[in-house]
Every structure is written in structure tokens, then in C-alpha cells.
Design a protein around this nucleic acid. Sequence first.
DNA 1: TTGTATGCGTTATCAG
DNA 2: CTGATAACGCATACAA
Lengths: 354, 354
Amino acid sequence: MQGMGKQSPANVTINDVASHAGVGKGTVSRVLNGGGNVSAATRSRVEAAIADLGYAPSYAAQSLARGRLATVVVVVPFVTHPSAVTRVQGIIEGLRPSGTPVSILDVETPEHARGQFLMLLGSLRPEGVIVVSLTPDGDVRRRLLEADFPVVWIDAKVQGHVSLFIDNAEGGRLAADHLLSLGHEAIAFIGDDEAHSGFGFTSAAERLRGVTSALAERGLELRNCLTGPHSKDVARELAVQLLTGRDRPTGIVTTSDTQAVGVLAAARELGIDVPGELSVVGFDDVEIAESAGLTTIRQPIAESGRRAAQLITSLAGGDKPSRRHVALPLQLVVRRSTGAAPTAPVQQPATTTG
Amino acid sequence: MQGMGKQSPANVTINDVASHAGVGKGTVSRVLNGGGNVSAATRSRVEAAIADLGYAPSYAAQSLARGRLATVVVVVPFVTHPSAVTRVQGIIEGLRPSGTPVSILDVETPEHARGQFLMLLGSLRPEGVIVVSLTPDGDVRRRLLEADFPVVWIDAKVQGHVSLFIDNAEGGRLAADHLLSLGHEAIAFIGDDEAHSGFGFTSAAERLRGVTSALAERGLELRNCLTGPHSKDVARELAVQLLTGRDRPTGIVTTSDTQAVGVLAAARELGIDVPGELSVVGFDDVEIAESAGLTTIRQPIAESGRRAAQLITSLAGGDKPSRRHVALPLQLVVRRSTGAAPTAPVQQPATTTG
DNA sequence: TTGTATGCGTTATCAG
DNA sequence: CTGATAACGCATACAA
């Protein structure tokens, strides 16, 4: 049974290093960490021993002794969305210099999210947490605020917490103003059906508000507003609906590039020329936007991840945040999917009997 | 002295639960884990106490006591590549049922990779490791094989290890055969410059081999073969070179959809009609391929991640792998980027002096 | 079935 | 500057 003892690498511990170097384990620990008070001679002896034995400190033991995991945890819903992916990439990139491992906690439903937060709080106790596009219940938020690790929120403005976000209404306004400036008056909106997600997202509603208020300033009303689950195909179907209905819009604003690409697909299917007969505006400016030639509202997605990572690193290092809330810049990026409104109505609306 | 220990939330421990329930900590541990020998009455008392106190076992302490981290680590280069992203998504998805956190270890260079593997082996000691598109040195491979946690390789066939991979040469052949069947004879290749990556990748070379051998079977030779760092823009530049040169090809095979999209961009810039004057084949069938209307060689990327995750879970559970090596299926997906070869030569090659 | 004692590998505290 | 030694919180072998 145990005759074989362990044939596995019999992981070398700090004790092995200590005896090999002829010092106490405390000393080894010191050279490993801050290493304040160690004589040069001892230090080099220990370092030699470490190299000799190929010693690496046990992550679990360190975590237990220190009271926290040397890992940054990212809590993110919809890891399949391109924007979520890009954010995570930014985070990983921003954390690379520090060498801190990144753990991904995917969440599917609000209850699932709650569970993940609880396990994070009670069990994981990581070095820092980055929450993406999520706003958990008040009690979880409070516990997160009281936790002894830093938390940074991306794409959510949370009271008392450090957060990076965008002005969604302004984004909607930018999109609408662009179409208006091109002469469009029949503008429709395709957005997420956030109410049904259960997460309590509000960004689509805010963007819609931006659009309608921009239109209102010109005395116009939104031609149509369709929402559905966030996906390219759903957006395509909604667009078909919009484009084959009576009040065909000449411009469509969407809440993501994914959806905009769906609208483009619908237009192609229906033989509607973009941007000749129809202009489409996306949101986010993820990678696909460029290759699809999409006019879109760019938000610095990867950048938000990078900044969150840097913030976490700095906060975990004991720094105080200079600003709690940081609004990220938004920018209209014009490509091939928008153009001047058709001079003649694309489709003559039936004149109502006067 | 030690009374002040920590003023932090004084996280509730297994001891608190034990005393609250009036049992020993061993019992609590038992109901928490396998829970074999616990009377129903005691069990419910303990469970009540756990719920009362909102107890969650410390991940670090569990890890230390058990000797391994309840985390699956993914080692992956180029997290920015769409295919890498998709694989990670698949892994996360496949691991969701088990609730195991996923840690991402990004690697930039071979040395970096080595360091990550070493820290993984010596320090992290996770529940399992999934290595994506990487083949480290022999000694690291051996240590990985001897480690007491399971390792699954994706996109790499590694001696003695469990691995999921594709037949790259077959992929190249599929692409070339498709173009050949459309009447193309002037076929060029744009691929990764893997030699300079330092990682020792060979997939591009294997795909190229598939292409050339398919051509050879018809008595043809590759018109041109250009390589460079893997990026859309580099591919675009290479394509411009190809398309403005003397021997303009009518078909281009690339080693990724990203590159194929670059080729498409080049064609558009040059006013070359696709697929009228030029056919383009991608590789992978990532999301962008569909919206770009790219004909491509589909490999089950997300699926590979899911399967790897399931394999890890099963292996970590003590199962023996049924098969060490699994070849994933490849499939030609025809879209709008390929069509019949132009009947008249697009560009009359200057007849060499006879 | 259940409580107790020991070990896991570090960090941190405290004399020396 | 350095070597013991006590936590850290849990799993587990062992005793009861």
C-alpha cells in the first residue's frame, strides 16, 4: 500500500529548503516574500537551495496562511457575448504584468449569480473581484463592499463601489443624431429584451431613451421599437418584420453589433441595399463591426477590462481609489452601413383616407 | 496579543458550525463531504447550523488539506485569437455543471509558458489542466504526465497524454479539393509564420502540406505561398501582394478565418470581385466566418473545449480514458466566398519567351 | 455513529 | 538578523 510511499514528485516544501540551506523555515519565507531582514549571505544560501530543489511555494498553503487567494476573480454573465469576451481579454492583459491568475466565474441566471457571489465571499476570498455587467442584490453588494478584498465593477454604476461604465443614453443619442444628420426621419430601434433576462439590466432601455430624446429634439418620434433576446438571429427576424411591414424605416439603431449584423443579414435577404435604402447603427465596436463595415458606437471594451485590472492591482496593493466612478468615453465610428436617407420614400405609405 | 488577530469579518469556520450544532468538527466535515456515516438527526442539525451561520468552507483550507485546488486550469496562448476564445468558452460551458472554477493562464512566449507550467506543477496543483495549442518541452510533458492531476491537450497530439486534435493536412486537402472542383488551378496559400512564434506550432505547415498534395494529385503546383504573423491586417497585406503580382491566383487558401477576412478586405480594396474573380477559403469556422459569408473548413472548436472539460471531470473522478487520442471531425462549409473559377484568365500572364 | 488529534505548507509573531 | 512556534481552516485516521 504505502510501501510505495509516494512516487509522485513528493513535492518539496519550505522545510526541505530550510534544512537544505541550514536555516529555519521562517528565514526561507522571508527571502521568498518581502525579504526585509535577511543577510546577503543567508539569502543567497536560501536562494541556492530553492533553485537546487526546484522549490515552489504551495499556493493553497500560502492562501490559507495569508487569508486570501492570489487570484483575481471575474464574474461575468454571457461569456459567449463578444463584448464579454473582449472585456475578459482586457482583464487578462491588464493582469499579465502581475502574473496573477484569473478565475472566470460564469453566471447564467440571477440565482446562479447570487450563488457565485456567496461562494466568492465565503469560500474563495480572492485577491480581488471584477464584476462585469451585473448588479446583484443589495445585501450581496453590501457584503462585497465590506469584504476585505477590492471589487471593481465594469458596465455598472454601483453606489459606494469603484466602477467603470458608459453613458448609455448618450450612446443612443450619438447613434440617433448620426442618422438624423444624414436626413433620416423614419428610425426604428432593435434592442435587448432585458426585462426577461432577470438580471435587471437597463442599458438597452437607457440607450433607447437616448434615441427617443434625440428624435424628440427634432420633433420626431421613433418609428418602431422591437426587442427580443440578445442574438444575431433574433435581431435578423425582428429586422425582417420591420423591413417588410408597412412603415419601413430608413434607419435602424441597435443595442449591439451582434444585432446590427443580424439586421444586415435581413437586409441582404430582402434585397434591401445598405446603406442605399437602409442605414444601420450598431453598438460596442467589437471586432466583427469592422469586417462587417458597421457604423457603430464605440465603447472601449478591452480598455475597460485593462483598467479594471489595473485598478484591482492598485487597490489590492493598498491604494485608495482616486475616483469611485469613471465614465468611459463613447465615440461614433462611421463605416459603410450608414448613408444619406433615401431621397424618395423607399416605400410609399398608403395615404390614409382624408 | 492574538486576540486582535483580525478585525475582518471573522469568517465563520467549521468550528463555529460544530459548536453551534453541538457536534465535533469532524462530523461537520463529514456532512459537507461524502457524508457517509452521519445519522439523519445529526446531519440535519449540522445542516441547520450551516444555513444559520451562512457557513461556506474555506477554499484555501480545503485545498491545503486535500492537497489540490478545486480549479481547472486552462493554459492557452493568444487568448486574443477568436478560436482560443471559443475554446475557452467551450471549456467553461463544459465545466459549468460541476461548478468548478476555471483559471486562465495566458502565455505569450515559450519561456513564459514554461514558467506557467512549472508554477502549475509546483505551486498550483489544480484538479486538472487543459492545455490548448501548446506542446511544451519534453521534461515538462513528462512531469505533466506524472502529475497527480489529469491533463487534457487540445489541438495537440501528445505521446501518452489524452488529446483532442484535428488532421490539419486533411483540412488543407478539403480546402484545396473544393477549389479544384470549382475549376481553380491558380491557387495560393496564406498562412501563419509559425517558425517565428517559437512555440513550434506545425498546424499551418501541415495544412499547407494537405493543399500541395491535393494539387499534386491533379498535377498542379501551388501558385504562391506567403506567410506572416497571424493577423487580419498582415493577411490583407499579403493578399494585396498576391493580387497585384504577376501570377494572380483565382483561389486563396488561408489557415484561419481571421486571415481569410483579411484577404476579403484586400479584394474589396482592389475592386476584385469575390467570388467572381477570386475565391477564398478560411479555416476554423469561427463566428465571423458566417457573417463574412466565408467558405471555410469547420473544426468543432467550442465542442473541443466542452469535450476536454468533460474529460477532465471524468478523469479527475478517477475514470480511465477510453481512448488517449481523439481526432475531431473536419468539414467543408461552403458560403459566398468561393465560386467557379473565372472562365477567362483574369489577368493574362505574359507568355514567356519560348 | 461521533468526537479528538494530527497533518497540510505557509505566514507571522516572538523571543533570542 | 534568525530560529522556534503558534495560527490558518479543513480533512482524516484513530479512538471511543
